[in-house]
Simulated scan of single mutants.
Amino acid sequence: MDENGIATIDLELSRRGVDIVELQETRLAGTCTIKEANYTFFWIGRPPEESRIYGTGFAISNRPLCSSQTPSGVNDRISVLKVNTKQGTIFTVNAYAPTLAASSDDKDCFYHTLEDTIRKAFIWERVILLGDFNARIVEDDFSWPKCIGHFGVENGQRLIQLCCKNNLVVTSTLFPGKPHRKVSWCHPRSKTWHQLDFVITRSKHKEEFLNTRLYHSADCDSDHNLVVSKLRLEPRTYHNQIKASKKIDVSNLRNQKLQKCYHQSLDKKIAAINTHTSPEEHWEQLSSSIHNAGSEAFGLKKRQDPDWYSQSRELLEPALDRKRAAMLKYQSRATRQTFADYHSAKSEAQRTVRL
């Protein structure tokens, strides 16, 4: 994930209407937060002086942001986010597992840390485990009836053992669907599709999941496709949002005509204030009279939008649309020509974003 491309990811996620997104292999240094038009991005990675590998992150919609706690990192492969809902707290774990080429010690260490993280959740909390596990789930619900539904894909022994020990279930195996909506990654050489990304929850809470499926058309500039789960939950708001008063355009203060209008308007408003009230109410009337008189005379300050994406939307969106069309064409028919077209459209979009 590139810091300059976060705005394009923000637009794509808003098109899908998802509330919380977990990101893996971000390859961004340190811990940081960026707020875009629709989502706030958090990422947890290695220190800046170390190599930029692994890393996890979250993209939380600005609507339920007040219901979410600040994400915390366990290490550069595992992070945790808590979300408050009316049904209870959701303990979400974001995981990026070692690949098949990693040593057995690295894999065992990862799953031991992951299991310790899951067990930190209270018994009444809803645990949702999401991420890129680089594992494939077998079509064997007879051997693992509590962990797998009737619609599994392939094999991943360590992941199945983790689910069995902690009473977890893989939600993507609970729902029927077309095979291409269950696979998230295509092998670059064999062109074979695999399901490596999963959404996992406690067995007692699986009824709250309405569906889990893949979206191949989501263009998030990743070789993995977007996995989306729909839940029957409602966020809980703990902080009431207080609307800030609009700012007065102070650049017009030197205009003598406007100053005269301001004094006249202020005298009228002060004369209309009811003095037989409490000090708090009297101050509220006085402050609102001063602000209203100033806004009427000098006008309100126009908000300057610092979002570079909004300013360049007309230039960026055509390039992103061409990139998305080339990606879908390559996914439907993987040939050298379609790959070259997709690579060219992707490079063009990257050059346009950097302008």
Rank of each mutant, 00 (worst) to 15 (best):
K323H: 06
P318C: 01
L316T: 06
T335S: 13
N274Y: 07
F298Q: 00
Q337I: 09
F298R: 00
D307M: 08
R322V: 07
A271C: 05
A293M: 07
D305F: 05
L320V: 01
E296P: 06
I270G: 04
A293E: 05
H276D: 15
L286W: 14
A297E: 03
F339W: 12
H282V: 00
P318W: 05
S332Q: 08
Y330M: 09
P306K: 10
S288L: 06
P306N: 12
S295F: 01
S332W: 01
A319W: 01
H291G: 01
D321Y: 03
D321R: 10
A271G: 11
Q285V: 02
D307I: 13
E284V: 09
W308D: 06
F298Y: 14
L328G: 05
A340M: 12
R313I: 14
K329L: 14
H276L: 05
A326M: 02
E314A: 08
K302A: 03
E296K: 10
I273P: 13
R313Y: 14
Q331R: 07
R303V: 13
S288Q: 06
R303P: 04
S287D: 03
P318V: 03
R336A: 15
D307H: 07
S310H: 12
R313V: 12
A272E: 15
Y342M: 12
A334M: 15
D341P: 06
E284M: 10
E317V: 14
P306G: 11
L320M: 11
I290Y: 06
I273H: 15
S278T: 08
K269I: 02
S289Y: 09
L286I: 13
D321W: 11
P279I: 05
E281G: 07
K269T: 10
Q285F: 07
H276Q: 15
S278H: 04
R324Y: 02
I273C: 14
S289L: 04
K302Q: 02
E284W: 08
S288A: 02
S332T: 07
W308F: 08
L300C: 04
W283M: 03
T335V: 05
L286K: 15
R336H: 15
Q304Y: 08
S287K: 14
A293K: 09
H276C: 10
E284G: 07
L316W: 04
H276I: 08
L315A: 15
Q331T: 04
Y342A: 10
K329R: 15
A326T: 02
E281L: 12
A325P: 02
R303A: 11
G299L: 01
R322G: 06
E281S: 13
S278N: 11
E284R: 15
Q311Y: 05
K269Q: 10
L315E: 09
S289T: 00
T338G: 13
K269P: 04
Y330K: 04
H291M: 00
A271F: 15
S287G: 01
A272N: 09
A340F: 06
P306R: 12
K329S: 14
L316D: 11
E296C: 04
I290V: 13
W283F: 14
A293W: 01
K323C: 10
H282K: 08
L300P: 00
E280L: 13
Q331Y: 09
S287Y: 08
L315H: 05
R333T: 15
N274W: 03
R324G: 03
P318H: 12
L328P: 02
E281W: 09
E314G: 05
A319V: 15
A325S: 07
